[in-house]
Design a protein around this nucleic acid. Sequence first.
DNA 1: ATCGCACACGTTATAGCATAACGCAATTGA
DNA 2: TCAATTGCGTTATGCTATAACGTGTGCGAT
Lengths: 132, 132
Amino acid sequence: MNAPALTKNQALVFEVLEKADGPLSAYTILDKLRDHGFRAPLQVYRALEKLLEYGVVHRLESINAFVACAHPDQNCHSHGIVAFAICESCGHVMEFHDHEVDHRLMDWTRGKKFKAEKTTIEIRGLCEACAA
Amino acid sequence: MNAPALTKNQALVFEVLEKADGPLSAYTILDKLRDHGFRAPLQVYRALEKLLEYGVVHRLESINAFVACAHPDQNCHSHGIVAFAICESCGHVMEFHDHEVDHRLMDWTRGKKFKAEKTTIEIRGLCEACAA
DNA sequence: ATCGCACACGTTATAGCATAACGCAATTGA
DNA sequence: TCAATTGCGTTATGCTATAACGTGTGCGAT
């Protein structure tokens, strides 16, 4: 899925996420966009839905928040499973990919004949700066 | 963290989860325990908090639900990272462990000096029966 | 051209998930 | 005995997400 041109709302939401230095909740995004005419959560969620589909935004399931992809220029969906390390102190998120992990999980699903659609890997803890 | 004797509320919640054939939301658990005197969500959440701590229940972050551990007799926390495959059609959950995946993720966190506290691995898709 | 369709958008209302803050009772250990 | 801890119950509230309805716009097929 490659990204077509973004609509106005999609572009606004994406811009907010790109400028943020950490993940944002949908409602935080909404608040940041009230000056741009956003009034209801659905405006945010609908934009997010598309941005997730295009692979330029990721959803962090364990904290109900959204973050811009670390390399939105490339097609993130083609990099295999995306993994995240989330600092519970400063909120900073690191995105990474590990093909060996992908292979192990794919091996398991193949063995079970499980048809994987979407895989979540999220490590919560303390980043180097905060752990010190 | 080994499990001390469960309190009445904890035992009730755990029993409901054990009998269920899939993950349950906190509010679903609440409804199933109204006849036993449960009236408020907090009664469920407080019990769940302890059961999670004891490692006899797992939280599925991607679906906001809870499931009994596949082997609550052993200490699940000592098995390394727990991974789940969740069927989006029938709701069935398979729990598994893969030490190679653990090692790869630990290698990454070590390299980044990230202090991991809790890791989530959840694969959503279709189980063998539902994919057919 | 205009009809039908797909899609984005706006709004209101509601559903679903989780915790804050208060107070009470029982237990434990100094 | 007193203080600290833990579990419990209740009320209220906050956060997250979607249902359902209607509007407008662009675009291809007939």
